[in-house]
Nucleic acid binder design. Structure first.
Lengths: 228, 228
DNA sequence: TGCCACATGTGAGCGATGCATACATAGCGG
DNA sequence: CCGCTATGTATGCATCGCTCACATGTGGCA
């Protein structure tokens, strides 16, 4: 096993980018076997390195998950920063949609971000900072809506809370259905009540968001003109 | 260690109600150290029995968690069944509140019920049945509201989806804040964005629920008369 | 009352895991 | 060419989930 040649099989003694590989493989493993069954040794095996190599990049199993969550917050913040603020109501709507869409397309990371696997954020500065960034963007969009009068002139923090709860809830149910939908036939999905409830939401998420938003905007009739 | 006498220390050779003890101890352990760190051996140690004794009551670690979730669905269904259906709108409101309150007072079970720890319900008949029972009650309450005209005359399933999403989201954020609030001083809590967003919701959950519900009921002005 | 089947708890043990420690190797700047 | 540092290796320990064979109460039935 002489690994002194660099180009033979793509990896020499040094893996190349073990950190990135671990993050990706980790995501795939969680998707297929859940957070519980995740093992650093298995990840190392799959990457073709020794069982303890991952500890050069992550202090612990927990730290690896935290890094994944951090990545998630950064991606979510970026997607929320991408919406234009020209029309405050449209921005509000786009923000909510991009949140739900991110959750739907990155269910594993989303669960790490908002679930209870990483119980305590303290001690993970990068994670905390990334999460704050998301919240700041939401707050900014809502503030613009309040300033323009498009959103109800209520307390900003309370508005943030209700909006987050609404979007977070829809995202959660959307994820649930997706997760099981890929693994099982539809008949089996309908055996799980939360998923049945979600079916309606997932099939027309924009419509559902619109309906719930009507209670939050100053002129609900304007919503009809947004996104069909 | 002669355990032939029954009344000496409360446990003889047979524990008494090991199953119940395990369920309770398990809940406490998850609350303090999360689902990840949970160990059947530790639970057995704490109950004063041999490391393999728990396997007489639960097929696996997973089965223990599923049993806990089942208990949760049964309790939640009971609390939702306790609300009167006389006034459909009031029933709708009470149902939502009792859902959020259950989540807030039993965060561990709630997470097991709706999180991704128990990935697949199939194979857990009791769990599936209990979950269905909850959904059936929600559906019933909404149907009454539709029949009376108090809720918007929309598709029942879609209504279930949006309501569930709304309530589920608020419950989730309420839990998050609570969980960390007990463990850390308030200044630290505010370091975690989702929790900050939640503060507004938690401080006046009924008001927040009311506001979001306005988009779902036929005559929003009637809501003002419900619960102060 | 006496006895036996069965539910419940015990004990040893296997393979795997997280993680700490000490060591080896590769690549890069001086 | 030397040596420093980042990265991966080797070894080892305590613990865990789970299996299997065995021990011990308990309640039902004659």
């Amino acid at each position: 096993m002489n690994a002194s040649q660099h180009g033979d099989d793509g990896r020499s003694y040094h893996h190349g980018d073990l950190r990135k590989t671990l993050l990706e493989t980790c995501c795939a493993h969680i998707a297929s076997q859940g957070t519980e069954g995740l093992s650093l040794r298995a990840l190392a095996r799959e990457a073709g390195v020794s069982p303890t190599a991952p500890y050069r990049h992550f202090d612990s199993r927990h730290a690896l998950l935290a890094a994944l969550a951090t990545e998630g917050f950064e991606e979510l913040a970026a997607s929320m920063r991408a919406v234009a603020l020209d029309d405050p109501l449209q921005a509000f709507f786009d923000c909510a949609l991009s949140y739900i869409r991110y959750a739907a397309s990155h269910p594993v990371k989303y669960h790490l971000m908002f679930g209870d696997v990483i119980g305590d954020f303290s001690g993970h500065e990068e994670l905390t900072a990334a999460a704050w960034d998301c919240y700041a963007r939401l707050e900014q969009v809502l503030q613009v809506g309040l300033d323009s009068g498009d959103l109800r002139p209520d307390n900003l923090e309370e508005l943030c809370g209700t909006v987050w709860a609404l979007v977070h809830g829809m995202a959660g149910l959307t994820i649930s259905a997706q997760a099981k939908a890929t693994a099982k036939p539809i008949e089996d999905i309908m055996q799980v009540p939360p998923l049945r409830a979600q079916q309606a939401v997932a099939s027309a998420p924009e419509g559902a968001v619109l309906r719930l938003m009507e209670g939050l905007v100053a002129d609900p009739s304007r919503l009809k003109g947004i996104r069909q």
